[in-house]
């Protein structure tokens, strides 16, 4: 019987939202579901995976998997896919998966596609997926050829999470870290200080540009983001000016994001910026210039001074959300 393998990611013993989205999509197909989880605590996920309708949990509960080593992960994941031969492999289009799966695909001689926004899996394991092309100026359907396992990386926040109708008791299979001389060593991982969701995973993004007037005023955006549980982003102009680090940049040479709500404060909307955020579901533009291109992409627009409106908006949301 055809089956789907879901590469799950987790933190603090909880499956990430993106993984729940993938599992919902996998269940819809009616196919047998295998889930792979790598890292300390993976074994403890078996129950949670069962509740998500997983038939078979493949877990690497090993500290060797806590730090992403491309070479080690390729070895392990390619090994599992070669053995299990799933018709379809699903993963979230995260930094880790985007680094890993192309190499895995090359090793096992199959196809991979990233950043998909739509997917349908048939009961025979056929895949119909769609993804943005040319920075979202158009989309295209993905057709796999000569691919024993069709590897699809889904952009987070695109699929609906549906509750599983019946919990299962998955079989649990353990995988170990191969002892092998590696040409890749992970020397150091310096965690970002924000502790917030990454821009690519965030459900709400509050982004600022030149209209915030000076770097210190980004504090206003952080205050707004705190009230909404949002992540703060920025335009290229303020990154290049050194106000905020490049990791916060949304747009062509920064990150491509598609949150449910994107609030652009004092961002005029250069084409490179629009390329990175026009997939957002609801876009709010606040800008002094009524002719700013950002308004053409916006759902709601306010012509006004972002510097003045953002703190007022923070107060309004505080009132709304505390009732």
């Amino acid at each position: 019987m055809a089956h789907v393998l879901v590469f799950t990611e987790f933190a603090n013993g909880q499956l990430k939202k993106g993984s729940l989205e993938l599992l919902s999509a996998a269940r819809k197909s009616g196919l047998k579901i295998q889930a792979l989880a790598l890292g300390t605590g993976a074994k403890g996920l078996a129950d949670a995976l069962g509740k998500e309708g997983v038939d078979e949990a493949i877990v690497g509960d090993n500290a060797a998997f806590d730090k992403y080593n491309p070479e080690l992960f390729t070895e392990v994941v390619a090994g599992i896919l070669s053995g299990k031969k799933p018709e379809v492999v699903l993963a979230s289009s995260t930094m880790l998966a985007r680094d890993l799966f192309p190499r895995v695909a090359a090793r096992i001689g199959t196809g991979v596609t990233s950043d998909c926004t739509e997917i349908e899996i048939s009961s025979s394991g056929d895949v119909k997926a769609r993804r943005p092309m040319y920075a979202g100026k158009c989309t295209a359907e993905v057709a796999f050829e000569n691919s024993p396992s069709k590897i699809v990386l889904m952009r987070p926040n695109q699929l609906t999470i549906t509750p599983a109708t019946a919990a299962k008791s998955p079989t649990v299979e353990e995988v170990s870290a191969p002892a092998k001389d590696l040409k890749t060593l992970v020397k150091e991982i310096v965690k970002g200080t924000s502790g917030k969701l990454d821009l690519t995973e965030a459900n709400i993004i509050v982004a600022g540009g030149r209209g915030m007037k000076e770097p210190g005023n980004f504090k206003m955006l952080e205050d707004l983001a705190d009230v909404l549980g949002a992540t703060v982003g920025a335009s290229r102009a303020v990154v290049d000016a050194g106000w905020v680090p490049h990791t916060m940049q949304v747009g062509q040479t920064g990150k491509t994001v598609a949150p449910t709500l994107y609030i652009a404060a004092g961002i005029s909307g250069a084409i490179q910026h629009l390329a990175g955020m026009s997939g957002s579901k609801v876009i709010v533009a606040i800008n002094k210039d009524a002719n700013a291109p950002i308004f053409q992409k916006a759902t709601y627009g306010i012509v006004g001074d972002a510097f003045e409106i953002v703190p007022l908006l923070t107060e309004e949301f505080k009132k709304l959300l505390h009732h």
């Binding site: 100026k137 158009c138 057709a143 000569n146 759902t299």
Partner: peptide
Amino acid sequence: IRVKFKNYQLPPEKPAVKMISGDS
């Protein structure tokens, strides 16, 4: 070749922006 792209589509037209007036 393992992956081909077909059936390209332009994104759907966005409904016009709703402008909000009044003081700040």
